[in-house]
Simulated assay, not measured.
Amino acid sequence: MTKLALGTHPYLLGFEQLERLVERTAKTGNEGYPPYNIEQTSEHSYRITLAVAGFTSSDLSITVEDNTLMIRGRQVDDSEGRMFLHRGIAARQFQRSFVLADGVDVGEAIMENGLLHVDLTRQVPEKVIQTIEIKKG
Rank of each mutant, 00 (worst) to 15 (best):
L115V: 10
M70G: 09
G73K: 05
K127N: 11
G81E: 00
A109G: 09
H86P: 14
R74I: 13
I110H: 12
I62Y: 05
H117Q: 12
L120V: 09
S79F: 01
T63G: 15
F98C: 11
G81V: 03
P125L: 01
D102H: 07
L69T: 01
S79A: 02
S97I: 14
H86A: 14
L100N: 14
D66N: 05
Q95R: 11
E80M: 09
F84M: 09
E80A: 07
H86F: 09
R82H: 08
Q130L: 05
E108C: 08
E126P: 08
H117L: 11
E80P: 15
V104M: 14
K127M: 13
M111S: 09
L85N: 07
Q93Y: 06
A109K: 02
A91F: 02
V99C: 14
E126D: 09
V104L: 06
T121P: 05
I110P: 10
G73M: 08
I89P: 06
R72E: 09
V118W: 01
I89K: 06
T63Y: 09
A109W: 00
I132C: 13
A101C: 05
A90W: 01
I110D: 13
R74L: 03
L85S: 15
D105C: 04
T63M: 06
I110W: 09
E133L: 13
R92P: 07
F98E: 13
I62T: 07
L85T: 00
I62G: 06
G81T: 04
